[in-house]
Design a protein around this nucleic acid. Structure first.
Length: 885
RNA sequence: GGGUUGUUAGCUCAGUUGGUUAGAGCGCUGUCUUCACACGGCAGAGGUCACUAGUUCGAAUCUAGUACAACCCACCA
């Protein structure tokens, strides 16, 4: 026997702990994967054989919750599957550390504020501010010092994230790590700017733009959200110039009255038609403004006649442009009413002295204060103007939507400032076309992209008046008076990037000429963080820097992300890819759902219901937590449920125990000859086919559930029980019988481990390392080939494909018989009779010995019957009473 | 106001192209431990598939509508 068969290697069960977690698998395998380069990307492999992930760079704000775990592990499932199919994997990790969240965190953490006007202090360093320090005024630091603090803190935060990702077992290649503020990312973002500028897709404009008065920066449409707001609709009476006629408008923004530059009504509105072409006179300030028609006015709303201010809303902007109205910018960048003078040198008024006196009542106030005071003034008799009472009714309370910056606390204002834009409005059709060329999972998520694209109102404002970001690579020449030539900016060449125009001089200038007449001025704005984030595929592929690498990595295969940032991250990435190279940035978008708390509220930092992941990783092991993630389909919001993690941990334990049994059986390598062994492998083959199809369809959840069901029902509870005795037999005379069982068991274990490997990387790697690693020549299961039809080619199919299933059903009937008689499954039987249909009995005869052994029966009688049996079987028998201890 | 998705056992969820008596796990109840595993096995109870109408021999599944929930979008007078 030993001449023809090789003795199988076995593991020593006695030396293993009872439970898997006792092995401390995390540290062991993390080290193994890192040392063996299990997840390394191979740049020599071509695009066809590479699977590229455009990983979301998490915002490094120091807060981690289960939502992160959930969505990032989804990506890992598909990536691990692809790796096992033989693909070279490009799976990077980035850190999105530039932008406002970091600035706010740094301000709070170190208790500092940035003041770009003060000089840099080399070596200035801070520790986390104590409560005592925070009672004082924040320390002002230069822009460069502030950026250094941002870098310092984000670096700390990134370590925390990295530790978590590694614990979770993300199969990221850490050589590909990047940060959106590092030199490379800044270079790519600035290259993007240069390329778009050259293509004529970038322009600067001084039109009114949405402005956050607290952060003192412009914002883009995508960063704006509507919030419910209670307003007060105040009726205000205007006069008609050179007439006794009066009319009343309704407004929620009386504080903007000084900025009123026109009045408009619907052209067909009989009440106001005759006023068109005349001038109205504003109350209090006595400013004559034109009355013009516009079809946008809804006669049903308010009083049907509207005051146009610079600027109350976007319709005002439209009217102001179309009618060529005056510009009276009232609200300053800090959200307070600017100082204004009426009269010859200032703003027009029919009675400037009275207007000036009244305006001092509101000058310098913020919008809320000014609104209150202006309402009072309008409700007060004003002797300066014929005792005229502009507003006689109490304001009407009204609920409406007001636009806010998504991170802001006060409503946005429309303020004219010079900003940079990327042309998007002219590309709506192209954007829709590109979105349609990408496969969305689930497919209905594309509707959000299309919805947003169709609703675009503005080009993309990419400039922000902040500090911690990628600077716009632009300088301006100054003339002899020191005025900048804004129309002809100086740009760097690509090889000069990255540049900081606030620190570096443009070619041909020295820093001594900075802000000097005939010198230059550096642009102070930084990019919208999305301007950089929208380049993540190109940051990884080193677009514009390494064309070979770019060709091997771009476009990516998958972009995983959550649904609330479809209008930003997905949208802008598609837009950039379209504008730069006219292609899609990736072929698939995978949308993860949200984690909801038991009250079905989204788990988020702002809601205050976040659950930190560490305790669950401790309690259920990373594999158990990953199992919980894996149970949820893409795009489906999931309620947090610790119970699911518990099931995952039980699955891990079961795998461990099954592995202990399978890999501890001594025997010889033998062909799979028994009918039941062949039947089992045939069923396993079917599972491989369905699980593979599920993965190809980006349906990890079903791949898992089908594998799991097979493992419990067909493997541990049935096949393993049926062949246990035969596998344990060490008699050399029957080595081919036991060898057949052991071979099938090992084959089953090897296949099941590989099917589970994308979900449960730790337990599967551990079990793989015992026997299969050496046998297969592949040290890591995560590099082992995905099971395929080829694995089964060496094995003969069963004579009757149903014999395995019939044996499993018969074993179930025997167990039920024992349980019904309050006997243990392990109770021995002196005699056992099974009745079933002739067809089933014929199948059971093929597995008679295994069935008898599994039943622990000294005698087994199989009898065919024509009776209709409810469960398909009728079982009878006698038990051998065990001696009591 | 426009749109997307969902509503199946106490809980978390499956249910592929309409086809016997609607499934799983958890939880609950009962029962069973020498021989991989009590973090286990077996069994049991538990559902008018949100509601209404329609199509069909037949509907959890298709159509229309209603209710509720979550989310996305919309020019704030």
């Amino acid at each position: 026997m030993e001449d023809t068969h090789k003795k199988l290697k076995v593991i020593d069960v006695q030396s293993l702990p009872k439970h898997f977690e006792k092995i401390n698998p995390e540290a062991k395998w993390r080290k193994f994967w890192a040392e063996n380069g299990t997840y390394d990307y191979d740049p020599s492999v071509g695009r066809e054989d590479t699977f590229v992930v455009d990983t979301p760079p998490p915002t490094v704000s120091g807060s981690l919750h289960l939502g992160h775990i959930f969505s990032y592990s989804h990506t890992d499932f598909f990536t691990r599957y692809q790796r096992m199919t033989g693909k070279n994997i490009f799976y990077p990790m980035g850190w999105d550390d530039n932008g406002l969240p970091t600035e706010r965190r740094v301000q709070n953490y170190f208790h500092v504020r940035c003041d770009p006007t003060i000089p840099y202090e080399p070596g200035l360093d801070f520790e986390r501010a104590s409560a005592k320090i925070k009672k004082k005024h924040p320390r002002l630091v230069s822009r460069k010092n502030f950026i250094e603090l941002c870098n310092k803190l984000t670096h700390e935060d990134e370590k925390v994230f990295k530790e978590l990702w590694q614990r979770l077992g993300l199969s990221v290649d850490w050589e590909q790590e990047y940060a959106t503020i590092n030199d490379h990312s800044r270079k790519i973002a600035q290259l993007s700017f240069l390329d778009l500028f050259e293509k004529g897709k970038i322009y600067a404009s001084s039109l009114p733009i949405m402005w956050d008065v607290d952060f003192q920066t412009s914002v883009a449409q995508a960063e704006v959200e509507d919030r419910d707001n209670t307003g007060h609709l105040l009726k205000v009476t205007f006069m008609v110039q050179d007439s006794d006629e009066r009319f009343t408008i309704a407004t929620t923004r009386p504080e903007l009255l000084p900025a009123c530059v026109g009045v408009t009504c619907h052209p067909d509105d009989a009440r106001y038609q005759h006023l068109i072409g005349q001038h109205a006179v504003t109350p209090l300030f006595g400013v004559p403004v034109p009355i013009f028609p516009s079809p946008e006015v809804d006669p049903e709303k308010g009083t049907g006649i509207v005051m146009v201010c610079t600027f109350g809303d976007t319709t005002d902007v439209e009217w102001w442009r179309r009618e060529g109205l005056a510009l009276r910018t009232l609200i300053g960048l800090n959200g307070r009413l600017k100082s204004v003078t009426y009269g010859e040198e200032g703003w027009e008024s029919l009675h400037p002295a009275a207007a000036n006196a009244l305006y001092t009542e509101v000058a310098g106030k913020n919008v809320k204060q000014a609104k209150k005071r202006m309402t009072e003034l309008l409700q007060t008799e004003n002797p300066a103007w014929q005792g005229y009472l502009a507003s006689t009714e109490e304001p009407e309370v009204t609920e409406r939507k007001v636009k806010f910056y998504e991170k802001g606390d006060r409503p946005l204002e429309l303020i004219p400032t010079r900003q940079w834009f990327v042309r998007l409005l002219q590309h709506k059709e192209d954007l829709l076309e590109k979105a349609a060329a990408i496969q969305w999972h689930p497919s209905h998520m594309r509707t959000r992209m299309d919805n947003w694209t169709n609703g675009l109102l503005y080009d993309w404002n990419i400039s922000r008046q902040r500090y911690f970001g990628v600077p716009l690579p632009v300088w301006y020449r100054l003339d002899a008076e020191g005025n900048p030539d804004l129309d002809h900016p100086i740009l760097p060449t690509p090889d000069q990037l990255p540049v900081d125009p606030m620190a570096d001089p443009p070619t041909g200038y020295t820093n001594e000429q900075r802000n000097q007449p005939n010198g230059f001025r550096g642009e102070t704005d930084v990019f919208d963080t999305w301007f950089t984030s929208s380049m993540t595929p190109q940051i990884s592929s080193q677009w514009g820097i390494d064309s070979d690498r770019h060709a091997n990595i771009f476009p990516a295969d998958v972009r995983p992300q959550s649904h609330e940032i479809i209008r930003t991250w997905a949208f802008y990435t598609i837009a950039k890819s379209l504008l730069h190279e006219d292609i899609v940035p990736w072929h698939h978008v995978l949308i993860s759902g949200w984690i909801l708390d038991p009250d079905r509220k989204k788990m988020s930092k702002s809601t205050g219901n976040v659950i930190t992941p560490e305790q669950y990783l401790d309690k259920f092991m990373p594999d158990g937590v990953r199992y919980w993630s894996a149970r949820a389909k893409l795009g489906v919001d999931t309620i947090f449920d610790e119970g699911i993690m518990k099931i995952g941990r039980k699955l891990v334990t079961k795998l461990y125990n099954a592995g202990k049994f399978v890999y501890s059986q001594a025997g010889w390598e033998a062909p799979v000859t028994h009918e039941i062994d062949r039947g089992f492998l045939a069923e396993l083959h079917k599972l491989v086919a369905t699980a593979t199809a599920r993965f190809k369809d980006y349906d990890h959840a079903h791949a898992l559930s089908e594998t799991e069901t097979f493992f419990w029902n067909n493997f541990t509870d049935s096949y393993l029980e049926l062949v246990k005795k035969r596998a344990l037999d060490t008699d050399p005379a029957t080595a081919s019988d036991s060898g057949s069982a052991i071979a099938a068991l090992r084959m089953g274990m090897s296949v099941l481990l590989r099917l589970f490997a994308p979900f449960l990387p730790y337990i599967t790697e551990e079990l793989w390392s015992w026997i299969a690693a050496e046998a297969s020549g592949q040290p890591s299961i995560h590099r082992a080939p995905w099971p395929s039809t080829g694995d089964f080619a060496a094995h003969t199919t069963p004579e009757d494909p149903e014999s395995f299933n019939s044996a499993v059903a018969a074993l179930g009937a025997i167990h039920k018989f024992k349980a019904d008689n309050n006997q243990s499954v392990g109770t021995f039987m002196s005699a056992l009779t099974i009745e079933a249909s002739a067809e089933v009995i014929a199948r059971l005869e093929r597995c008679r010995t295994d069935l008898q052994n599994a039943a622990r029966a000294q005698q087994l009688q199989l009898t065919a019957t024509a009776d209709e049996l409810e469960s398909g079987f009728r079982v009878a028998g006698a038990f051998i009473e065990r001696e009591k201890k």
